[in-house]
Amino acid sequence: MIPGISITEILSLTSILFFIGVYGFITRTNLISMLVSVEIILNSTVINFVVINKYLYPELLQGVVYSIFIIAVAAAETALAVAIIINLYKQISSVDVKETETLKY
């Protein structure tokens, strides 16, 4: 609980963060930037869970526990994505989405 700040303000922040992430994922052409955008989305949900837990249902810690799991899984996901990106970089010397277009309809 932060005195003087209501839940509406924080949830607005997380919604804005979420849409920034989606926008970034769609418009960015650099694979690393796309990964960063996904991380922004996941972090917005983490804040969402913690805030909802703290403001609305403070008697149980379900949301807080959930957020810890999200952070851990997101780390694993990022590690794998970076590993694949590095492998791709070894082959095409680029991390740009435009270079990964050999598969297309």
């Binding site: 979420f18 992430g21 989606v22 994922f25 694979l31 796309m34 990964l35 996904v38 989305i41 996941l42 917005s44 949900t45 969402n48 869970f49 909802i52 609305l56 379900q62 949301g63 959930y66 999200i70 997101a74 996901e77 794998l80 994505a81 694949i84 990106i85 492998n87 791709l88 082959q91 990964t100 050999t102 598969l103």
Partner: peptide, 27 residues
């Protein structure tokens, strides 16, 4: 490698979106 990066990025985006939905159901 291209298939791998496409799968992991789409899957991460998908799980992020569905988590946002789950947080609303939780709310």
């Amino acid at each position: 490698s291209e298939a791998g990066i496409k799968l992991i990025l789409s899957a991460a985006l998908a799980s992020g979106v569905s988590l946002f939905g789950i947080s609303m159901l939780y709310a």
